[in-house]
């Protein structure tokens, strides 16, 4: 049976916690298909240092190395035993078939990488927009894949389990330019949002707490600019932030969380600074003007009062 080793850098454990919520397959079903060598939260018998020694002396071959959390080579900020996460990764990088960055921290650096007093915090192969993190951008594991990024703060469990199973089954995974599985991250979190009708007719949500209105215009929603299938593969099997009425904060993107004012759309003289992906601002403003002129009466009522 193939095996999997899970290590953590600067992390909140959120990706582990999210993975426990997996349903298709369940967490424990995944680890019937692949042996879990070590996980810092669940291994009570195994010791990471012992596992590392066995790998180092080639007594143990690792197939999947999963990294949760941002990495740093500064001892003051992170240690596992006597090693930094960066030292452990340098030891392992050429010995494993695949390295999976689980979550946005390991993928792009995320919140830990915004700490200004330690500029060394980074993702594995990216640091925000910058290509190359702990490993250079041309680094590839034995399998020929670069670090496979499953971003999201946290990642959705299905994105992870399905990636692992696809690789176990020998399927080829196409990656996008940020090394995310393309077939997951080709969708925008906007796709499938139950507020799409409000988006199309430019019915703007002005405040929180309503089922009606699109959150894109005033309330900071990043749905039309964020690569994530959050409204296709639902969270906890039932919902998503935008369905509940919370704006998408773009947490699967490489530039999260560099933005400010998550609950407010950046506008200049009332015009949105950013427009949905794939459309020019000119075209977007034109279509907005037209949509606003023709009203869809249904969308201007409380849902409970519609025909």
């Amino acid at each position: 049976m193939k095996n999997l080793l899970w290590i953590q850098g600067l992390s909140c454990n959120g990706n582990t916690q999210s993975l426990l919520n997996a349903e298709n397959p369940y967490f424990y079903e995944l680890f019937q298909k692949v042996e879990l060598l070590y996980h810092p939260s669940f291994s009570y018998r195994e010791n990471l240092q012992t596992v590392l020694k066995r790998i180092d002396s080639d007594k143990l071959k690792v197939n999947f190395l999963v990294v949760e959390g941002a990495v740093t080579s500064d001892m003051k900020f992170h240690r596992t035993g006597n090693y930094t996460i960066a030292q452990i990764l340098q030891k392992l990088k050429d010995k494993v078939d695949y390295i999976i960055a689980a979550g946005n921290c390991a993928s792009f650096g995320n919140i830990p990488a915004t700490l200004s007093c330690n500029p060394d915090v980074t993702g594995l192969q990216f640091r925000f927009t910058q290509k190359g993190g702990l490993f250079p951008s041309d680094f590839k594991t034995k399998s020929g894949y670069p670090i496979i990024n499953i971003p999201g703060c946290p990642m959705h469990p299905a994105w992870f389990t399905q990636t692992i199973i696809a690789l176990l089954e020998g399927r080829k995974i196409v990656l996008d330019s940020f090394n995310r599985p393309k077939e997951l991250f080709m969708y925008l979190s906007h796709d499938g949002c139950i507020r799409n009708e409000y988006f199309e007719w430019k019915v703007e949500g002005e405040e929180f707490g309503h089922k009606e209105g699109c959150l894109f215009y005033n309330l900071g929603c990043r749905g039309p600019m964020t690569h994530a299938p959050c409204n296709k593969i639902l969270w906890n099997g039932i919902s998503s932030k935008t369905r509940a009425g919370m704006p998408c904060i773009g947490c699967t993107e490489f530039d999260f969380p560099l933005r400010r004012n998550y609950f407010e759309t950046k506008k200049n003289i009332g015009i949105p600074e950013e427009v949905p992906l794939g459309v020019t601002k000119r075209a977007y403003l034109t279509i907005t003007g037209v949509a606003k002129t023709f009203k869809n009466e249904r969308l201007n009522k409380k849902l409970e009062e519609t025909d």
């Binding site: 703060c153 969270w235 906890n236 919902s239 009425g245 919370m246 998550y262």
Partner: peptide, 16 residues
């Protein structure tokens, strides 16, 4: 935690 997802969209890490 589906209860949190009902009201807040997801768990972990909603800001609902």
């Amino acid at each position: 935690v589906k209860v949190i997802a009902v009201f807040g969209g997801q768990w972990p890490h909603t800001s609902y």
